Amino acid sequence: HSLRVHINGKDFEVHNADEHVIRALEELIRRGADADELKEFLERWKG
């Protein structure tokens, strides 16, 4: 899957995101994670 996440006016393109990554991202958003947390998660995932 390809996923586009809009954080703090920046678009993050997440390519080849598997279900696990997408679910983790949705969980963060549901918990009310702020932009920094989401960005950190995506950067860690992209490795």
Rank of each mutant, 00 (worst) to 15 (best):
G32R: 05
E43I: 07
H6T: 14
G32N: 08
E13I: 13
E37S: 10
L28Q: 06
G9P: 00
S2L: 15
L28H: 04
R30T: 11
V5H: 01
A17F: 03
E37F: 09
A24H: 13
R30W: 10
H1I: 15
E27V: 07
R30Y: 07
G9L: 00
A24K: 10
K46R: 12
A33S: 09
R4E: 15
R30I: 11
V21S: 04
R23D: 05
L38G: 00
H20Y: 10
L25T: 01
L25Y: 03
E27G: 09
R44N: 13
V5Y: 02
E37Q: 11
E19R: 10
N8F: 04
N8Y: 03
F12Y: 14
G47Y: 04
R4G: 15
F41A: 10
E43A: 08
R4S: 15
N16R: 04
E37Y: 08
D18L: 04
N16A: 08
A33I: 06
E43N: 09
D36P: 06
A33C: 09
E26H: 06
G32V: 03
H20D: 11
N16S: 09
E27S: 10
A17R: 03
R30F: 11
E27C: 09
N16P: 03
A24Q: 11
F12K: 00
A33H: 06
E26A: 07
E40P: 02
I7V: 06
H20Q: 11
R44F: 10
E40T: 10
K10L: 05
G47D: 13
H20S: 12
A24T: 07
K10P: 00
E13P: 02
A17Y: 03
L28N: 02
A24G: 08
E19K: 12
L28K: 04
E26C: 12
R23A: 10
G32D: 06
E13M: 05
E43T: 06
E43Y: 05
V14D: 00
K39Q: 14
E43G: 08
E37I: 10
W45Y: 13
D34W: 05
I22R: 04
V21L: 15
H1V: 15
R31P: 01
N8M: 04
H6Q: 11
D36I: 08
G9A: 01
I29F: 08
D34E: 13
H15G: 03
H1W: 00
G32E: 05
H6F: 02
G32K: 05
A24F: 08
D36N: 09
A33G: 06
E19A: 11
L3M: 15
D36R: 08
G9E: 01
E37C: 08
I29W: 06
N8C: 04
I7C: 02
K39E: 14
W45T: 13
V5A: 04
E26L: 13
V21I: 12
D11F: 12
E37V: 10
G32M: 06
